[in-house]
Structures are given as C-alpha cells and as structure tokens.
Computed example of a mutant assay.
Amino acid sequence: MKMKIKRWQAVAVWKWDLPDEDDVCGICRNVFDGCCPDCKSPGDDCPLIWGQCSHVFHMHCLLKWLEQESSRGQCPMDRRPFVAASA
C-alpha cells in the first residue's frame, strides 16, 4: 500500500536553552559583557583575547591558564598551541 502526502505542517520547534558559546569565556564561563572572577567591574581592566583558533577568553583567565604547567601553552578549548590573533 502506498501513501501520498498531500500537505505537511510543522507542529513544533525546539532549540537548546543554553547561552551562546560565543558569548562566554571558555575558561570561567562568565559572559563577556561582565568580567572575569578577578575583576571587580567590566571594562578596560578586563580585556578579551582572541586566539588564531578563534576562541576568546578574558585576559586574566587566559594568563592564569597559560601559567599552569599542565596547560602546556595550549588553548583550553581545542588543545592546539595558543597563539594570539594579530589585530
């Protein structure tokens, strides 16, 4: 028996209810509009650093990460050697 669909309508749509990964630091998971855990207020004292790998971090979070021996100078997100993107 064959059936032919004459009309189709979507009855539901879903999406993940999570913050956009591009809007949070990959280390501390705080939003970029705010500041890292070490800073008291957002602004120039808490700049963002982009890597050539396209991941973005608060400067203080990244510096702490890279100071750890276990980081081996790698991006915390994809473990490639971290190289800051040039402006």
Rank of each mutant, 00 (worst) to 15 (best):
S54W: 03
K15Y: 02
L62M: 05
H58F: 07
S54I: 06
I49V: 15
V13N: 14
W50D: 15
F57K: 02
G34H: 07
G73I: 01
D17M: 06
S54H: 10
D17V: 01
L66K: 08
E69M: 04
K40N: 10
A10V: 04
A85L: 13
V24C: 09
E67G: 05
S54M: 11
G34W: 04
P76Y: 01
G43C: 07
R80E: 15
S86Y: 06
W8R: 14
R80C: 13
F57T: 02
I49M: 05
R72N: 11
D45R: 09
C75G: 08
C25E: 03
R79A: 15
V83A: 05
D45K: 03
A84M: 10
P42L: 00
F57E: 02
C75E: 07
F57H: 05
A10C: 10
C35Y: 08
D20G: 02
D33K: 03
H58P: 09
G51V: 04
P47D: 08
I27Y: 00
C28I: 02
R79Y: 15
K4Q: 07
G43L: 10
D23W: 10
W65F: 03
K6S: 15
P37L: 12
D22W: 05
C61P: 01
L62P: 02
P19A: 13
H58A: 02
R79N: 14
D20T: 09
R72I: 00
E67N: 08
D44Q: 11
R80M: 12
C75S: 05
D22M: 07
G73M: 03
C25F: 02
K15M: 05
Q74D: 11
V11N: 05
N30K: 11
Q9L: 07
E21S: 11
Q74H: 11
G43P: 01
I27K: 01
C25T: 00
N30E: 14
G51E: 08
G43S: 08
G43R: 08
C75Y: 09
L66H: 09
S86W: 04
A87Y: 12
P47F: 00
C39A: 13
D22N: 14
D38Y: 09
K6C: 14
V56K: 14
D45F: 00
V24I: 12
Q9T: 09
E67Y: 03
K4L: 10
K2F: 05
P37C: 11
H55Q: 03
I5E: 12
D23V: 12
V24N: 05
L48S: 12
P81T: 10
S70D: 14
L62T: 07
W8P: 00
C28K: 04
V31N: 01
K15V: 02
P81A: 06
L62R: 01
C39Y: 04
C35S: 14
C61V: 01
C36Q: 11
Q52N: 15
P19R: 14
V83W: 02
D23Y: 09
I5C: 13
D22I: 04
K64Q: 13
D23T: 15
W14V: 06
K2N: 10
K4S: 10
R72M: 09
P81Q: 05
A10N: 14
K40R: 06
E69D: 13
V11G: 01
I27C: 03
K6T: 15
P37M: 10
D38Q: 11
S86R: 07
C61E: 01
P47N: 04
W14Q: 10
K40I: 05
L48H: 06
N30A: 04
D78W: 03
W65T: 05
S54N: 13
W8Y: 10
D33N: 09
C25D: 07
A85E: 15
A84L: 10
R79G: 13
